[in-house]
Design a protein around this nucleic acid. Structure first.
Lengths: 200, 200
DNA sequence: ACCTGAACACCGTTCAAGT
DNA sequence: ACCTGAACACCGTTCAAGT
């Protein structure tokens, strides 16, 4: 045993993260374990603790990759062809679509297990900020005169709401028997918030 | 050992639930275990499995009690004195306040560990429905001519949004450095959604 | 009938020991 | 320096054995 050097530290990191991601496609985060990830990598648990501080730390890095992917998906949208409101709707639909097609990864972003008791590191918060700035950019086009504080506030309101609908539509426990699709809900939401905002 | 009969089955259920609730005041759901609950009750784990199917089942009953408490708190609000919009805002603030002062209990309601792979039982969904009907009642006063489907849709949009803001304000990871309080966000949200809705 | 204690198959994390 | 395997202190769940 010892010093296999089959992989560099970077390769090992990549291997760990992609192994975790693959497992999350099959099972929920609550059933994910360090031993399973290590086995999928072809290593033992101990190796994982050379790369990451602990399991929450590993999962935080999985989340960082998910945010990056989400951001890149957003950049691929053809923004210039449409109105700001249409673009915001497009972002929201992309978000909803992503949440549904990558349930495991998406749910993990908001899993309390990841955060633990520690604060989120700066490099992670920067990624969150980058995503918000996409929405803020569109909001500024709608109402160019509004203050930065107002833009921040509305972007948070909008996004929290979209997020809330995604959450509840995924573990579809809270819509009871209602027939309304989450797409319709989001469309209605954005229309109403923006209408209320611009008429204010 | 055996047949202590110190407690009836009902007392045992009550004991289990309140023990779990007390533990949730101290630590997050991820650190809650059957063994801890049993110890706090003064029994062994086995006893827990005579009362509940498993841990998710126990937690589901904790959630049911939380919903009941939330519902009772809502009923205590002095609704008749104010406008429908003011009442909705009051419900939302109550919800936000509850989320903050009972973080452990509130977070558990949306914990994926509870649901597992099974559907939520009808008696539980009824409780969720009861809470929604409070909001729907107010919405009907705002726009008495709207269809039931419209009421349902708007209530879901409203509540998902409020919920989203609560979620993100609790694990305050996603507001980055923004200075806006969640109370302001919710007020802004409700105002805008309702304005958008009534002007449509 | 009710409760226990031990067992089973798992966890996350650490660390001496090997190369 | 890197990796392993065993160890520690925990899990959820089951069930024979006791009264």
């Amino acid at each position: 045993m010892a010093r296999r050097s089959d992989h560099t530290r970077e390769e090992l990191t990549e291997l760990a993260l992609s192994s975790a991601e693959e497992l999350l496609n099959i099972k929920p985060a609550s059933e994910l374990s360090t031993r399973q990830i290590a086995t999928k990598m072809g290593y033992t648990v101990g190796t994982l603790y050379q790369i990451f501080k602990n399991l929450p730390d590993l999962l935080l890095h999985v989340n960082a990759r998910t945010l990056k992917r989400l951001y890149n998906d957003c950049l691929k949208l053809d923004i210039k062809q449409h109105s700001a409101e249409q673009n915001i709707l497009a972002y929201a639909n992309l978000y909803l679509e992503f949440a549904h097609s990558h349930q495991g990864l998406w749910t993990l972003i908001f899993d309390n297990k990841v955060l633990g008791d520690e604060e989120l590191p700066d490099w992670y918060l920067m990624q969150v900020k980058a995503l918000f700035s996409l929405i803020e950019q569109q909001l500024r086009q709608i109402k160019p005169r509004s203050s930065e504080q107002e833009i921040t506030q509305i972007s948070r309101v909008l996004w929290s709401s979209v997020h809330g609908i995604c959450t509840l539509s995924i573990n579809n426990n809270l819509f009871v028997q209602s027939a309304c699709s989450s797409q319709e809900l989001i469309a209605s939401l954005i229309r109403n918030i923006l209408k209320g905002w611009t008429n204010g």
